[in-house]
Simulated scan of single mutants.
Amino acid sequence: MRLQGKTAVVTGAASGFGAEIARSYAREGANVVIADINEEWGKQVAQEIEGINSGNAVFQFADVSRKEDVEGMVDAAVERFGQVDILVNNAGYTHWNMPVDQVPEEEFDRIFAVNVKSIYFGMNAVLPHFRNQTQSGPNKGVVLNIASTAGVRPRPGLVWYNASKSAAIGATRSLAIELGTDNIRVVAINPVAGETPLLAKFMGEDTPEKRAAFKATVPLGRFSQPADIANAAVFLVSDEAEFLTGVCLEVDGGRCI
């Protein structure tokens, strides 16, 4: 129960890494807002959480590229649970693996809106609540950005996705420096490619040959699983990590060594 009494907003929480992060937070005692554009899957995850430790969860529709939606998900947390302590910027988007000069402009815009501008919207939405936080604890609030090993060790065919995740890492470190005096922590996880709905896009196609070729680049020999990311996500937002800020943790089986 490391997150007992905390309220977390998790974006992209209807599937993949986000859904497992939300479930793990509930198991650790947190109230959770499931923010996603997929209403059917999001409500299903919220219902699952209601059965975890008598957990409390609510689904909130949110397109994280829209300011009003991001503000709405934070407002939903405060209205339902009275506060917001944790924001997980997990929602992500990518183009199909392809040469840089073939990526359509609308795809470029969507990638940066979902992967980067959403962090801007999210910070602006939670900061007033964090700064007014009266709840006891070592930190006033924590933001966790799900970046990627693509921002550390880029792969061909994913130039603009790589660049967006480099921006997320840079934002994490910059925010940590600026907000440290407010006792607000900002951290990130850099997952290696995993078993999520985006996997086929990363590889260009999902075939046994493509999977084998990618796994060969990971010293521990497999893709990441949602539980790998969720386990790190619990620790980084917990009071056990109260002296960690600006950390961008590779959860990658050694891929970035």
Rank of each mutant, 00 (worst) to 15 (best):
P104R: 12
N115E: 08
V32W: 03
V159W: 04
R110I: 09
K165Q: 00
T196N: 08
E240I: 01
A233L: 07
S24Q: 13
Y25M: 07
G180A: 05
I189L: 13
F108I: 15
V10E: 04
F223K: 10
V64I: 12
C248V: 09
L220C: 09
L127Y: 06
D206S: 13
S54P: 09
R185E: 00
D101W: 15
R80N: 11
I52Y: 08
A76P: 10
D239I: 01
G72T: 07
L198P: 13
K117M: 10
F17L: 10
E68F: 11
F61G: 06
A77F: 10
A77M: 11
G151L: 05
P197D: 05
G29K: 02
V152P: 02
F214Y: 13
S224C: 08
I86L: 08
A212D: 12
P138M: 11
R110N: 11
Q47E: 15
A113V: 11
R222A: 12
G16D: 03
D63C: 08
V114Y: 10
G157R: 00
H129A: 05
N190L: 04
D109E: 15
R66L: 15
D228G: 04
F81I: 02
V152C: 04
K201E: 14
S54D: 15
R222M: 11
A163L: 13
E240G: 04
E79N: 15
A176L: 01
I37S: 01
G246F: 08
S136V: 13
V103Q: 05
Q83F: 14
E106S: 14
I189T: 06
G141V: 02
I34K: 03
D228Y: 03
Q135P: 06
F17D: 06
A213H: 05
G18I: 08
R211C: 10
A150Y: 12
V142P: 01
R185Y: 00
G204L: 08
S166W: 09
T149E: 11
V88G: 00
L236C: 01
W160A: 05
A200N: 06
E28H: 04
L127P: 01
A227L: 10
A241S: 07
R110S: 07
D63H: 13
E107H: 15
V237S: 00
R222F: 09
N115F: 08
E50Y: 13
G16P: 01
G29P: 00
D63P: 07
V152M: 12
G221T: 06
